[in-house]
Write a protein that binds this DNA or RNA. Structure first.
Lengths: 338, 338
DNA sequence: CCCGTGAAGTTTTACGTATAACGTGTCCCG
DNA sequence: CGGGACACGTTATACGTAAAACTTCACGGG
């Protein structure tokens, strides 16, 4: 307890153990194979424990020139999806002695010019969702190792990418609905400028274009229950034959669509089949339970972290999209007979 | 661009501007009132900008002995509630030049003994939810300024607390249901050892004990839709007169209860009134929309951060619980006539 | 007997920053 | 005309750690 209230330093430990500060560093850093005798090492460990010594991270980071800390930039935490991504990334990071700091949606937090003013920790690398791509330029300027999640492989300027196989997910949804007999589709699209949403529209359109006798209309909505409800209501009120299958970009949109359908006097799935994408907890909370595409968010985070570790080592990360799979529940059924 | 690939330091900037490193520090630190001439200051700023200089946080933290970074410990991010708490805390923090680092649920992340191994950043203070109280002892050992969220004012060992007025929330729920005519209550309690859940049970029991002719039963469930569904199903299948009002500790529990009611052939709210607590997005996604208690999570985070700032200044934080209010939606109605 | 070798440490240095302490020159006032 | 006072800087130092470079001693082989 050297003096006063300041935390003990390695020098205090050294003094208490009767050795030099260097010896403390060696012992506690586990670098003492043939440098320090076992009894002395034990004395050091005892003293450190007795004083409640905790190394000063700032000093260590300064000395080592790295922080073993990585930033995860996500669009927002209003969905559990990115919470799971975090969990997966943090697990892998911890296995490699790294920590993960979360940087959620910049809306209203910190000065817009420098989104990292609030992420004060110095960083060794960044994992960023493409849905928060506006922060990307600032990161590139820092020359930090970067991995993008769900980003256009062409457009990410050489940064490594880890993607979910959303294209295949939409294909599975479409096949499922076509097999049930649906022909008139409505796509409820997220009103968010992001590659990961663009490919949904692209794949759905491509698949239906290859199937004669099908029609596809599109409605756009912000990712919120109210927004989705409003957009679906106007889309369903449009003239012409009513769609029988509603493909939503996201589970939350589907939840809003349920409400619109109910208000329009339509029953899910008898009058209208609805599909989502994500498989959040929400999917089984609503009635009927939602047919959706399960994304393994935790694995997504793990793969993202693995990729970043590879980039930081100067290696090339593993290739290949993460598979997804359709979960059929009660919100899809054959279309009503006209 | 001193040499190679290392980031420019303040010394590089000094050299480029033709001044000493100290001058750079003064100018960039805005401490140069009468110490450096305006033209020189401008030269320094230009050089810094030209080289893309960014101060080394580790060195600054070491020098200043503080990090302007605060930790927010939350039980998990599987609910948007704590995401909003974060948003509020981060806003206030940013206004005071602080950053907030999130530390979600330790489940499976990092060694259990030291929950902060993965929060590598050095910290100036901690805001912790009582739902993650197991981490509390480790924090106290570090002598860090600490603010507890929703914690027993008696039992938090002198740490400052910021609480939502849950007691009043439960009172409002109970009054509402009593006014509708309900007499047989079932309490679906979260199976989580935390003061914030204890007081729900306490207040509900106290209020009903003061009202003759009422009965109260209790079921416990983990906070998940499946868990709540299972617990509610067994509780509803119990012998004796069926409860007409189901008070849930949490919106997610209510969503599970909906499913149990439906499976038991009961309609909400005609046969069974259900209430929640939180007012998450989930509350309006389910049908009928949930009568619940709205908690202002963002304000909660703001107040938590304000309290922590006060504690760090050695002051006493503002007293007083945060008000909450009942939101009446479609899940409550008068009890069925026997 | 002498030198090499290995164990068991210690001394020293550097990381990049903020700031206290210390020069300069110039001007103004008594 | 001498010496503060002020403007404009610079030099030096400390923060706590990790690790390279150095010291000391004992021992064993040729």
């Amino acid at each position: 307890m050297a003096r006063g209230s300041t935390r003990p330093t390695s020098r205090d430990v050294a003094q208490a153990a009767g050795v030099s500060q260097a010896a403390v560093s060696l012992v506690l850093g586990d670098k003492w194979r043939g440098r320090v005798s076992e009894p002395t090492a034990q004395r050091v460990r005892d003293a450190a424990h007795r004083l409640g010594y905790r190394p000063n991270l700032a000093a260590r980071n300064l000395r080592l020139g790295r922080t073993r800390t990585v930033l995860l930039v996500v669009p927002a935490l209003t969905t559990e999806f990115f919470a799971e991504v975090y969990t997966g990334a943090a697990r892998i990071a911890a296995e490699h002695g790294f920590g993960v700091v979360l940087y959620p949606s910049p809306e209203g937090v910190g000065p817009a010019r420098d989104p990292f003013a609030s992420a004060r920790a110095a960083l060794d690398g960044v994992i960023a969702s493409s849905m928060a791509a506006d922060a990307l330029t600032a990161i590139r300027g820092d020359q930090l190792p970067l991995v993008m999640l769900d980003s256009d492989p062409e457009g990410s300027l050489g940064a490594a990418t880890v993607n979910l196989d959303i294209t295949d997910g939409i294909r599975q949804v479409t096949e499922h609905l076509l097999a049930l007999g649906h022909r008139r589709f409505l796509h409820l699209a997220a009103d968010v400028p992001s590659w990961t949403f663009d490919i949904r529209a692209r794949e759905l359109a491509a698949r239906l274009a290859g199937t004669p006798g099908t029609t596809l209309r599109t409605a756009h909505a912000p990712i919120s229950i109210e927004g989705a409800q409003a957009a679906t209501e106007t889309a369903l009120a449009a003239p012409g034959p009513r769609p029988t299958a509603l493909v939503c970009d996201d589970d939350k949109l589907a939840a809003g669509a349920y409400k619109a359908a109910r208000r329009a006097g339509l029953r899910v799935p008898d009058d209208l089949s609805v599909t989502g994408l994500d498989d959040l907890g929400l999917a089984t909370a609503i009635d009927p339970e939602l047919t959706t595409v399960r994304l393994d968010a935790e694995l997504f985070g793990e793969r993202g972290m693995h990729a970043l570790l590879a980039v930081m080592e100067g290696q090339t990360p593993q290739e290949g999209d993460i598979p997804v799979h359709l979960v059929v529940r009660g919100s899809t059924a054959p279309p009503p007979q006209d």
